[in-house]
Design a protein around this nucleic acid. Structure first.
Length: 489
RNA sequence: GCGGCAGUAGCUCAGUGGUAGAGCUUCAGUUUCCCAAACUGAAGGUCGUGGGUUCGAUUCCCAUUUGCCGCUCCA
């Protein structure tokens, strides 16, 4: 474990040193749990996103993509349950360090009072609590706790901190001019992208003439206040999700849940990452919206952690939006129900959700790819750091090196660059010894390097050097482009 | 959020109550015909930030911030 912790630190350092990830606003000492993707990282992240997008929308005829706004009507979050479920005032006991939700603390005390026969007193306290909660009167609530001598069950003391609100969602003001007194113009930065799909369910279904079962995919930023961060890009306040909501006929959700659970793991394995690095974690305790749920976990250097979730959400989300918006979130199913011989008719579709964190996937790919190798021989010590990135995800696909920077070799190399750069990302370098250039490319995961030497001028061949094996092969210049395209296809 | 440890060049670190050094990296050049080469030269730090003690603080003290470890929390 100590060793793995070192590996995690090494990956973080490597990400910074080679332009993958920087702490946000670093010149101002950074911003906790926020990170920026650099010149290499943004390419890798984009490639992961594209690979997901393509596997969802291009390879499935019945899945389409959207790009919904981050701002959404505030009622969205009432319907989704985020406003009520994640806005709780909290209080800490200074002695036991235990944190309580204020309402839970007071309610537990009321129960005790009722058991002691002080029923009216308990009722009075609860009524007062409701009033104070409704007014967000935290000072009043703390006074209420003090007045009733409520103590911590662990420490037994009443040494409380001030009451603070835990807000999962980031709030901001809508409109260029500040609201007038009492006028509520708060909007939230979305804490998940899924709701952008649900509120567009009818739009997409009708304009795309989509027939159940069908899916809507989306990638985009989401924002959450976390109580602690401190796990590099694993847990960030601003992060990117890749979600797909799959709408199915009620009664078929079980089989589709199974289908996507399996299909999503296959997607991960298609990147060449070994199956033993993955496991499922089936949820026993389910969230308010879920009927069945599991996580796909990956063996990160910090242990097995969730990278993707597959949830059977039933009709919860569409139903909630129907309730709040008064718009019918229904689908008319013309298919014949063999049981009745009649069409299935109108219903609210059930939803299977696949939701993967792009940043976590980035970390997953890095964790899998990062390798420190000892290449020492009896004659001399040697080592290298190599990122064994899947070729289709690598930021740079091909590096082109003239063996020396004279005798016309750079000119030949430039011609190769011209031939390839419109097809994939290439990198040219003529500085330093050839071995050093190879190693620099290893460190950023470039799968192929070709080197132009004097023989190239005679027979139009170059050596192509493979990142993982470090082996070289002589191939015609005319074949370079196809070699790379084949590997990244 | 609480406790412990830490912050000196891009990276890894040394150092001292008298306004800072090494290796690697980077850049310019010489030499090099396939895996961290050598040589020459150069660049780069208000020693995390603010305050205090002192004739003088990177060094001692306090606060603050960021990171790491542990605990706590995490639909």
């Amino acid at each position: 474990m100590a060793n793995d912790s070192n590996k995690f630190q090494a990956i973080i350092s490597h990400c910074k040193e080679y332009g993958f990830i920087f702490p946000s606003s670093e010149i101002y000492d950074g911003l906790q749990a926020v990170y920026d993707y650099g010149q290499m990282g943004s390419e890798l992240k984009k490639n992961i996103r594209d690979y997901w997008w393509k596997s969802m929308t291009q390879l499935n005829d019945n899945i389409v993509g959207i790009d919904a706004a981050i701002f959404m009507h505030p009622t969205t979050w009432k319907a989704s349950g985020h406003v009520d479920n994640f806005n709780d005032p909290m209080i800490d006991n200074k002695d036991s360090k235990k944190r309580y939700r204020v309402d839970h603390l007071i309610e537990a005390h009321a129960e005790q009072m009722e058991k002691d026969g002080r029923i009216d007193e308990a009722k009075g306290m609860l009524v007062e609590m409701e009033n104070l909660l409704a007014k967000d009167d935290f000072a009043g609530l703390k006074q209420l706790i003090a007045d009733h001598g409520i103590t911590c069950s662990v420490s037994g003391t009443s040494n409380w901190t001030d009451i603070r609100q835990f807000n999962l969602m980031f709030a901001t003001e809508f409109g260029a001019v500040a609201a007038e007194e009492g006028q509520d113009n708060i909007v939230y930065l979305r804490p998940e992208t899924a709701q952008g799909i649900f509120v567009n369910f009818l739009n997409v279904q009708k304009t795309g003439r989509m027939k159940v079962p069908f899916g809507i995919a989306q990638t985009g930023k989401a924002f959450r206040n976390e109580i602690v961060a401190r796990q590099f890009i694993f847990r960030m306040r601003e992060f990117e999700q890749m979600e797909m909501q799959f709408f199915v006929r009620p009664g078929t959700e079980g089989e589709w849940y199974k289908y996507w659970k399996e299909a999503r793991l296959q997607w991960h394995l298609s990147l060449g990452i070994p199956a033993e690095s993955y496991r499922y974690h089936d949820h026993v305790k389910l969230a308010h919206y879920a009927k069945e749920a599991c996580d796909i976990e990956f063996n990160f250097p910090i242990g097995f952690k969730e990278v993707e979730g597959i949830h059977s959400r039933g009709k919860f989300d569409l139903w909630q939006h129907q309730e709040y918006s008064k718009k019918k979130m229904q689908y008319f199913d013309n298919d014949i129900d063999p049981a009745t011989g009649k069409p299935y008719g109108n219903y609210i579709p059930y939803v299977i959700e696949t939701s993967i964190g792009l940043d976590r996937m980035f970390l997953l790919v890095m964790s899998h790819a990062y390798e420190e190798q000892d290449l020492s021989t009896p004659e001399k010590p040697d080592s290298r750091v190599v990122l064994k990135l899947p070729a289709k995800l690598a930021p740079i696909k091909l590096a082109v090196f003239p063996l020396t920077k004279k005798d016309g070799l750079p000119e030949v190399a430039e011609r190769i660059m011209d031939e390839c750069r419109s097809s994939f990302r290439c990198f040219y370098e003529e500085k330093d010894a050839i071995g050093k250039r190879y190693r620099r490319m290893d460190a950023v995961g470039t799968p192929f390097c070709v080197t132009v030497d004097h023989q190239t001028k005679e027979d139009n061949t170059v050596t192509i050097r493979y990142r993982d094996s470090m082996e070289q092969e002589r191939i015609p210049v005319s074949e370079i482009r196809n070699r790379v395209l084949q590997a990244i296809g």
